[in-house]
């Protein structure tokens, strides 16, 4: 069976995606900054699904380590879930926070996924899935730096899809809207627009199976964002979003 690498496996969505692919029979590689945290997730996946699961140290901003890391495990499917989100007001005032967001969400993602894509295009087979965000669809004040880092990531994934297509490598972009995670449990989220990590994982898995290019979670976010993208800028800049 094929092997799935989950980058950012300590996040709620990362764990849910790992469990979902494991339940479908894929072997799992879990990667995170603190792999020692993942022992319980590993035993859980192995016992629930009877697949094999391993844990690996991966730091998105330690670019120099990425090649050795990836070439040491060579998964068939690479899923980038990792990301950082700080309070935008803090990041606006503190460059180190803004820089970490940009470096994790964009620079680090480009670094590791370039390596994965080179491997996949050489062997003419492979899949890359990137978890971006609806926040990247249009820049706005409340998601200033996070949104722009995700916009860059979405643009990168679109380009990568275009570049790798001829080599039989598929790239899927996932844009979740609101998700109930530890990161958002202190926010008041509108229930009909919000999904659980398990729902995200199911939609990602189904999208992967169907060979989708870009999927929104939930699906109607595509149309919400379409409306938001089409508000004229002279109007948009006055809005509180």
């Amino acid at each position: 069976m094929e092997t799935v690498l989950v980058l950012g496996a300590t996040s709620d969505i990362g764990i849910a995606i790992a469990r979902k692919f494991a339940a479908a029979g894929y072997n799992i590689q879990l990667a995170a900054r603190k792999p020692e945290q993942l022992d319980a997730v590993k035993s859980d996946i192995e016992i629930r699904s009877g697949v094999s699961c391993s844990t690996h140290a991966f730091d998105a901003v330690k670019y120099d380590s990425h090649a050795a890391f990836f070439n040491g495990i060579k998964p068939d499917i690479t899923i980038a879930v990792f990301g950082t989100m700080y309070e935008e007001e803090d990041a606006f005032n503190d460059w180190s926070l803004a820089e970490t967001m940009i470096n994790t969400n964009y620079t680090g993602a480009v670094s590791i996924l370039n390596i994965a894509a080179r491997h996949y295009t050489t062997q003419q087979r492979g899949t890359i899935i990137g978890i971006s965000s609806v926040a990247g669809d249009r820049g706005r004040a409340s998601k200033l730096v996070y949104g722009s880092s995700k916009a860059a990531f979405s643009a990168y994934l679109a380009g990568l899809r275009n570049k790798c297509f001829k080599d039989n490598v598929h790239v899927m972009t996932v844009k979740p809207g609101f998700v109930y995670t530890r990161m958002t449990e202190n926010l008041k989220l509108p229930a009909p627009l919000t999904s659980t990590p398990d729902e995200v994982a199911t939609i990602v898995y189904n999208g992967f199976k169907a060979g989708k290019n870009t999927i929104y979670v939930k699906w109607f976010w595509r149309y919400i964002m379409l409306i938001i993208k089409n508000i004229p800028e002279f109007q948009f800049k006055k809005m509180k979003l």
Partner: peptide
């Protein structure tokens, strides 16, 4: 609810360990 991992399952003896 998110601390829900299975830690071990001895299928011979029927002993289950979890969060």
């Amino acid at each position: 609810l998110k601390f829900d991992k299975i830690l071990s399952f001895d299928t011979a003896k029927g002993v289950f360990e979890c969060q």
